[in-house]
Design a protein around this nucleic acid. Structure first.
Lengths: 223, 223
DNA sequence: CCACAAGAGTTGCGGCAGCATTGCGGAGCT
DNA sequence: AGCTCCGCAATGCTGCCGCAACTCTTGTGG
């Protein structure tokens, strides 16, 4: 799960990013509208959190701009401008939800879940692979209904592979599923995750195997 | 157990909230209809207590509004308008019960229990886990039929975990089960509850264990 | 078919974030 | 007053995970 946060208050952005991270959500952050379109073009987010007052303009203007590129990514507007009239304005422009500041992170999470539930692409609320069932929204994995607890990062790798099982997943795609562009890694951390994950999957009898496609990425196969 | 109280008399609201709290019910409170729909969307209450005379309108109008969103949460109307004709009006609009002010808290509790008993979602009137039987409506726990008395908050944590035994429960879900949105906690109070609860469960030989899922939440397993 | 290089796999280490435990003191109940 | 509950914070502990060293695998060219 990956979202884009468009917000110019650095402190709020960092707090949000940390909080979302604990729910297994990877957050990319930009402070400017100018970058936002570019980012959505490259990355394909599951949702977008949008501030209204931004240094380079009114955030709402981003909504039609995004829709024009054919994307219907859910958008939640976060703003201090919370009069009924302003809410209506935002929703009519195509926002999926509208949340006044200040807000509780838990409220945001709940709304995010609600919005994603409606989104058809993520009807994969449960992913099954081999004997596993993965619930990425609640961060849980079971093997034959027995819960299997995995470290967060390994779980993210697993989910990314299982979501596209039987297909190769680019190495870069996997990295994107686990790290945002601020957390750079300069080692084989991903390989290490894969290695440890494989071991755990065997121990648990998960009924899947992770194959390597040299120079390209990885591939999950059911057995 | 979590309910929403829609009531504009602050004093009554606080008294009720306190009284319900002693019965292990977490109460969210709003004085306005305007917020109520919003709150139900995020929180999924087990029941709603509704006043008729509210600053922004007739409380009853909330009932069809809620039903239209597909929720059939039980609603109890609390009001000074207690003529037979008014009662009928309320019930016909879809309220599950109608209680004239003033009333005894005990009567309210009894009606609440009655209403909840009918609710299919809470057919889990008794939760069993290991050697325990938990009755969240009457706030009791027994181990092999021997009563075990637990502090209120620990009991709430226990019930929340037992209700979803063998599954991970998000940390935030547990917090929501124990605290309403006005009581914020800025410490590891939850961890402390877990710790003390664990000790008591061992002493009592409850036949369950609470495991931690690092960065995610907790998980109750039977032994 | 061998040599070699580059990518992939494995594993121990260490820093650190999140968790567990517990004493303290205020608040509320009897 | 004496009790329990429970939030708070100090302390110690655990395990995640980035890192890097080293080995193993695979593909290529001679």
């Amino acid at each position: 799960m990956r979202i884009l946060l468009i917000e110019d208050e650095r402190e709020l952005a960092e707090a949000l990013s940390a909080a979302l991270g604990k729910h297994g959500i990877v957050t990319d952050h930009t402070m400017q509208l100018a970058d936002a379109v570019e980012l959505t073009r490259q990355n394909g987010y599951d949702a977008i959190l949008l501030d209204r007052r931004l240094p380079d303009g009114e955030g709402l203007s981003f909504i039609p701009e995004l829709r024009r590129t054919g994307k219907d990514t859910p958008i939640i507007v976060l703003t201090a401008r919370n009069e009924p009239k302003e809410r209506i304005e935002g929703l009519d422009l195509g926002a999926d939800d509208y949340l006044g500041k200040p807000f509780l992170v838990e409220e945001l999470m709940a709304r995010l879940r609600a919005v994603l539930r409606r989104s058809p692409e993520l009807a994969e609320l449960k992913i099954t692979a081999g004997r596993m069932v993965i619930d990425p929204l609640h961060l849980s994995v079971t093997v034959d209904a027995v819960p299997l607890d995995l470290p967060r990062r390994e779980l993210l790798v697993l989910a990314a592979l299982a979501r596209r099982k039987e297909k190769t997943v680019l190495r870069s795609t996997l990295e994107a599923a686990v790290y945002n562009y601020e957390e750079e890694i300069q080692s084989n951390a991903l390989d290490a995750h894969i290695s440890r994950l494989r071991k755990r999957l065997i121990d648990a009898g998960a009924g899947v195997a992770i194959h390597n496609i040299r120079g390209v990425g990885y591939l999950m196969k059911e057995e």
